[in-house]
Amino acid sequence: MRKSLMRMTLRQLQVFRSVCQQRSYSRAAEEMSLTQPAVSLQIRQLEELLGQPLFDYVGKKLHLTDAAEALQRASADIFGRLESLDMQLTDLQGSLQGQLSLAVESSAKYFVPHLFAAFRREYPEVNLQLVVVNHAQALKRLSANRDDLLIMSLVPSDMALEFLPFLNNPIVAVAPPQHPLCAREQLSLQDLSAWPLLVREPGSGTRRACEEYCHQKRAHFAQTLEVGSMEAQAEGVIAGLGLALLPRHAVRRELAQGVLQELAVTELPLMRSWCLAHPRGKYLSPVAQAFFAFVRSQRSQINALAERFAAPGPGLPPGS
């Protein structure tokens, strides 16, 4: 190991991480209650120790160099180990404490707070940092090792991941209750294609899964309207803009209130599974280990909890 690397300080790494997150020396200085020259000095000292520049300015934007990307990954591991040490020390005192950093794909964001609440009843001194992302963003966060664990519904086969499927995520077709298709007792996906379909943004795992499934079933929608969230999809359907394919969990309240209706499509629901994932070989903190073990061992409790989110549409039996 280079001797110069041994002279890096945790304070320098803290300043570096702040600049990476803020993409600004001045905002990093404000966040850390330092002057901007002090931040510049810490970064310059780091660059001297590494022998390479950490940041480039293109126009007025700050960009990370390859060396900065490498240092960012290393610093995340260093601070993760220190946080893990803190958790282990508190665990030795008789209670599990610390923070769980959890990223979830947006289709799971309605259920995960209830899952964490069940976990926190066993470990009341654990806190949660929750980030909601789409599928493409989830893959980037996995590659950068940004989170303790990630909940996703389409686990890539080309990444070295440990993952645990733990709950079904049924995707259904919904329409406003006054829509003519709501009167039909049996439909095919092709029957839906005459109406506009509201879809998520590129990078959404739900959109990708639905597009692949509709292509497989030869259901081609001539008109699609792109919106940026499941909430916008649901509101668009309520407003009469078209139909949507949505996770049943995401629209359980709208189905229960009768402002949306689940269509009786024979090829639906499209069943997918939510999975708890992390990079293979990743060192998990005691809190992350406890959460992973909780999800693995409490399947019956999780399934019972999920029943609250499986409200079927009018005329459809539970579990259809």
Rank of each mutant, 00 (worst) to 15 (best):
M1T: 09
R2H: 07
S18M: 04
S26M: 10
R27G: 06
A29L: 02
T35H: 06
V39M: 02
V39Y: 00
E47H: 03
Q52A: 14
F55T: 09
G59W: 08
G59Q: 11
G59F: 06
L64R: 02
L64S: 00
D77G: 05
I78Q: 05
F79T: 05
G80E: 06
R81V: 10
R81N: 11
Q88S: 12
L89C: 03
T90I: 00
G94S: 00
Q97Y: 04
S106P: 02
S106M: 03
S107N: 04
A108F: 08
A117T: 13
R120W: 11
E125W: 02
L130Y: 09
V132G: 03
H135I: 03
Q137M: 05
Q137F: 00
A138R: 04
A144I: 04
D147I: 10
D147W: 11
M152G: 11
M152K: 03
S153K: 06
S153R: 10
P156R: 05
D158V: 13
F163L: 11
F166V: 07
F166K: 03
N168S: 14
N169S: 07
I171N: 06
H179G: 11
P180L: 08
L181H: 07
Q186R: 14
L187Q: 11
L187R: 09
P196N: 04
R200Y: 02
S204D: 10
R207C: 01
C210V: 15
H215N: 13
Q223L: 06
Q223C: 05
T224M: 14
L225E: 05
E226C: 01
S229W: 02
M230P: 07
G240S: 06
A244M: 12
V251S: 12
L255E: 05
V259E: 14
V259R: 15
E267F: 08
L270H: 08
L270K: 07
L276G: 13
P279A: 11
P279M: 12
Q298C: 13
R299D: 10
R299E: 14
N303I: 08
P314L: 07
L316K: 14
S320D: 09
